[in-house]
């Protein structure tokens, strides 16, 4: 899922300061699962803003909505009839959802209520960790299902570097060396031959280097 963290309330209050009539928009997708931008978070944030603004003597009217997904056009359309009745939208979807809404409704300022994080997994309730950087050229079949691009701080492709000490990465004592994890897994899977199959150079042309990416499925267009 795409993860995120709430922006500090002071920052959000500063963003909405010029407005007295806004929409707070959540998303039932990833941000609901990681408890940062779903229906409940819309209610909590809206109440918080109303309380803060009323206490400061500058009331704010808020329409609370939560869309099925903010990254699909059909779920944004129901907002079209009323969005221009409001001065701004504070979205607590991921950066993709916020941008897509901004593209569809060009006359209304869009404000981000969260800081979008990474593509990750739920370790346990309240803890998420990164697993994928969307490099566009997956090698997990050769690396025991552990991604060297994400799990190695340097995203290197030729085994542990000199900063790996007893399975721990030099960047942080809490971070395991991605390559040590890969080798340990390959050994346990009896697939160490895969270590030699890795490409000498990884092509990054499928990653972010070429700017914003696009996928076109001709069979679906």
């Amino acid at each position: 899922m795409i993860t995120g963290t709430p922006k500090p309330i002071e920052e959000i209050l500063e963003m909405v300061e010029p407005y007295d009539n806004i929409i707070v928009a959540g998303c039932f997708g990833c941000v609901t699962v990681c408890r940062v931008g779903g229906d409940k978070e819309v209610q909590v944030l809206s109440s918080t803003l109303r309380l803060a603004r009323e206490a400061a003597g500058k009331k704010i009217e808020i329409r609370e909505v939560c869309l099925e997904r903010q990254c699909d056009p059909e779920y944004l359309e129901p907002m079209r009839p009323y969005i221009e009745d409001y001065q701004a939208v504070l979205s607590i979807a991921c950066g993709a959802g916020i941008q897509f809404m901004a593209e569809k409704f060009t006359k209304t300022p869009l404000l981000p209520g969260i800081n979008t994080g990474f593509l990750g997994v739920t370790e346990r309730q309240g803890e998420w960790t990164e697993r994928c950087q969307g490099c566009g050229d997956c090698v997990l079949h050769l690396t025991g299902g552990i991604c060297p691009v994400t799990r190695c701080a340097k995203s290197i492709f030729h085994g542990p570097c000199g900063g790996s000490v007893q399975g721990i990465c030099e960047v942080d004592k809490e971070v395991k060396c991605g390559w040590q994890l890969i080798i340990d897994r390959l050994v346990s899977l009896e697939q160490m031959e895969n270590y030699g199959k890795l490409k000498p150079y990884k092509g990054w042309d499928t990653s972010r280097d070429g700017g914003p990416r696009r996928i076109i499925r001709e069979d679906m267009v």
């Binding site: 500090p8 309330i9 002071e10 918080t48 803060a52 206490a55």
Partner: peptide, 8 residues
């Protein structure tokens, strides 16, 4: 924590 942040 919220009430603290918004000075309620």
């Amino acid at each position: 924590n919220i009430l603290e942040q918004i000075n309620i």
